[in-house]
Design a protein around this nucleic acid. Structure first.
Lengths: 199, 199
DNA sequence: GTCTATATCTCGATAGAC
DNA sequence: GTCTATCGAGATATAGAC
């Protein structure tokens, strides 16, 4: 019956991932050593290799998992279909909410692309492209229905996503604005940016 | 008369800076070694220390210089005063143009804040804040004159700057869109995002 | 599953010859 | 001003005992 301390429920593995995520987000992948991660997990550096093959895999696992969760979360998000503007509002609020809920993972996903091996980079960019495409598709249909005044749905999608993602660089809980209120503001800005009719 | 090869016109010093800028932008500060920089400059690692006291100073010099140049360039940029919407258009076009002209420096300025020593970070954030404030000020006056529909000039400034800066993540020269045309699109999106009257 | 110990390598920075 | 040589530290990853 007796088992090794760390194996109860398999807590060490997940702790390696969450600790690495926190440290990578705070100091950057290249600036964080395996010894630092091990130290915060509470094991020796060598023990990490029971859970991950190497440092690069650790980074890629975090980034791939994050992107898969974003894609899955948007797929699962209840949102209307058939009304492009309603879809755009749902996407905007979803993106702001999700990016405020997962700030560490979001930060890593945007900052550490350069540190991915070529094949890992390719895999990650494919997922990012799929996510961007879900917004571009909404904007394309909105344009076709003459609900927005944009000329280039792809460029508009880049602009909107950059604007929305930026919320995580300044927002602080406990300030003047609630997350709800911030989402309202960003939806107002998004609606304006794409030239949607006010209604 | 004879001087050491590298000292003619003092070319090595600037080359250290430009090489470091290129490498930091491409691979990240922490991932680039002094030996790499020296190798691309064409000298041995030890020779770098004739031009810079240490690696951290090299990073800070690049970032501080960039921010000072942004601030100076906007100050020198001919733009109307007194008409907040005309100022906003000038700022938008200036920001897009400048950020496409200095992509390496811009990239570093946004990605390497975490690698600055505390006192250097403070100095850099003060400059960034001053730049953001020049946009916030425009938006505040535009709001006072009821030319825009935003509720919070500070949040609107964050949103606009994030949207505009994002142009450097996707724009490629030689594609379907010229820089001029891209600036037109971003001005259209900015005008909409702040809820400016169409005129 | 974690430990200690270590192999192998690279890092930033310095010293001193020329 | 650049070189060679090197110091001391810290890096990733592995081996083998328990």
């Amino acid at each position: 019956m007796a088992r090794t301390a760390g194996s109860f429920g398999g807590v060490t593995g997940p702790r390696v991932l969450s600790t690495a995520q926190r440290l990578f987000a705070r100091h950057g992948y290249a600036a964080v050593s395996m010894r630092q991660i091990a130290s915060e997990v509470g094991v020796q550096a060598g023990a990490l290799y029971n859970y991950i093959p190497d440092k690069q895999s650790l980074l890629f696992d975090l980034m791939r998992t994050h992107m898969d969760e974003v894609l899955q979360a948007w797929e699962d998000e209840p949102h209307p279909t058939g009304d492009p503007l309603a879809e755009l509002e749902a996407f905007t609020r979803f993106h702001v909410r999700f990016h405020l809920e997962r700030r560490e993972a979001v930060f890593i996903a945007y900052m550490e692309l350069r540190n991915l091996d070529p094949e890992n980079l390719e895999a990650l960019l494919a997922r990012r492209k799929a996510y961007e495409e879900s917004l571009t598709d909404i904007l394309r249909r909105a344009k076709a229905a003459r609900l927005v005044s944009i000329s280039d749905p792809k460029v508009a999608a880049y602009g909107v996503i950059a604007m929305l993602t930026g919320v995580q660089t300044w927002f602080k809980d406990g300030g003047d604005l609630s997350r709800e209120k911030v989402a309202d503001i960003y939806w107002e800005m998004t609606r304006g940016a794409v030239g949607a009719m006010r209604g």
